[in-house]
Design a protein around this nucleic acid. Sequence first.
DNA 1: GTAGATTATGTCATATTCGACATATAAACA
DNA 2: TGTTTATATGTCGAATATGACATAATCTAC
Lengths: 103, 103
Amino acid sequence: MMKATKRKKLESNGWKVGSVEDFLELSSEEVAYIEMKHALSNSLRERRTKGKLSQVEAAKIFKTSQSRVAKMEAGDPSVSIDLLVKSLLALGASPKELAKAIS
Amino acid sequence: MMKATKRKKLESNGWKVGSVEDFLELSSEEVAYIEMKHALSNSLRERRTKGKLSQVEAAKIFKTSQSRVAKMEAGDPSVSIDLLVKSLLALGASPKELAKAIS
DNA sequence: GTAGATTATGTCATATTCGACATATAAACA
DNA sequence: TGTTTATATGTCGAATATGACATAATCTAC
């Protein structure tokens, strides 16, 4: 947390000071959603690399393309939570593990 | 679990005997996915009713229509996990609560 | 009963997500 | 160095999810 004194100083110099979500004008729900997606993305990459799989190999398992796997792991906006969940399940993750990842 | 004797009898009569997922030809991943969706659907209805909200009122909060809310709670195939998650977050659920719901 | 509120179901045009492809960038290693 | 393997990025037509609407079914008081 930023100190109140520093905050005041910055604000007096014309800066708007706030959290990252304020800056990007995201509501806390949007932040939570994005963070959940990132948690799943990271989980996916972890599982894949721990299984010594390349993105090409993982793509075969998921019946998709390497580029989409890359986007999944990058948390690309074009990737849905559904796709991340399905992919994680396909790598053998259990719902409990998914729950752990997002909490 | 079905008894082996009964299984044999049924199979000898031309029946394929197995679990529900076998019957519907669903893989365990597909089952897990559907179960996760249902858990979120149920969670959503619980939260909405506990908050004394009608589907119409919830729809306003979600910026969608009553019919889509009904489909969300029914676990309709046309509803994504993304939409369920976003709606739950809009009702004030935390990622931890979502995690609890699916595990 | 029946009137009003609530929830469910079917459909559709639009929006978003999808797999795929091309190509760029990066990492590993001789 | 150059070659190979892995990952990232941009784009596109096809597939899927979306909000909205109409209408049906179900509840809830009176």
